[in-house]
Simulated assay, not measured.
Amino acid sequence: MIIERPGSERGHATHGGWLDSHHTFSFGQYYDPQWMGFGPLRVINEDRVAGGGGFPPHGHANMEILSIVLDGQLAHKDSAGGGGTIGRGEVQWMSAGHGVQHSEFNGSPTEPVHFLQVWIQPDRVNAPPAYAQRAPQPGDDAGDWVQIASPDGADGSLAIRQDARLYRIALAAGASTHRALDSGRRYWLQVARGTVLAADRVLRAGDALGFVDEGEPLHVEANGPAELLLFDLPR
């Protein structure tokens, strides 16, 4: 089964003139019982924050939080001692564990920051909070799937607390890729940039597909420069 999630149908919220956010799954004041998550994948928010704007300190618990910067700079600080500024192509992981306070602000006073924030439910509760960052690596933009998060930290990925793997790929115009799918797992394909043909469907930035009980290889072809995320999740 292939589940279609058009980006144009996502939840949408603005705040204070500095935040423009689209929600793939129910979040905040956006509630849709049809879109509460996908397995342990609970949140994909596409956020644009104006220069100088940001989220003041607030709390989280028992959630794996990944922030993936598409453009600009994102500054983070948390009560567990984690913090830093990440730029385009960088990924930040915060495991909220038994509870943590953190803030996220645009790292620039003038230029916007565009990023995806992902929440994944952990495989354990009330663990100590943890934080790490992954910088861009040579070959990340070579047109191959790059593992950026995993349960075991394989291939230099961020070691998260769930049986989930997150892959990222950057494709040039006209480039294509195949990815084997295991029918015993579920997958979520999210288009971060560009337009692609995936599973015989035209997808644009913000669009997504979910795969359940699918064992046929996934074929993706880029109509122009494109960037995609693929979540490999427990069934």
Rank of each mutant, 00 (worst) to 15 (best):
P6E: 04
S8P: 07
W18G: 00
D20Y: 08
D20G: 04
D20Q: 08
F25R: 03
S26L: 04
Q34C: 08
I44E: 00
N45R: 00
D47M: 00
R48S: 02
A50F: 11
G54K: 04
F55S: 01
N62K: 06
L66N: 01
V69R: 07
V69A: 02
L70A: 15
G72D: 01
Q73K: 11
H76V: 09
K77N: 12
K77E: 11
G83C: 03
G84S: 08
G84E: 13
G87P: 15
W93E: 14
Q101K: 09
N106Q: 06
S108L: 09
T110D: 15
P112K: 09
V113C: 15
V113W: 14
F115N: 03
I120G: 14
I120H: 12
Q121M: 15
N126S: 12
P129R: 05
A130T: 14
A130L: 09
R134G: 01
A135I: 02
Q137R: 11
G143T: 10
Q147P: 03
A149Y: 02
D155H: 07
R161K: 10
A164Q: 01
L166T: 09
L171K: 01
H178E: 13
S183K: 09
G184L: 12
R185F: 13
G194K: 04
A199N: 15
D200F: 08
V202S: 08
V202T: 13
G210P: 07
E214P: 02
E214R: 09
V220C: 15
E221L: 13
G224H: 11
G224W: 06
G224P: 00
G224M: 08
P225Y: 02
L230G: 14
D232W: 04
D232Q: 10
P234E: 10
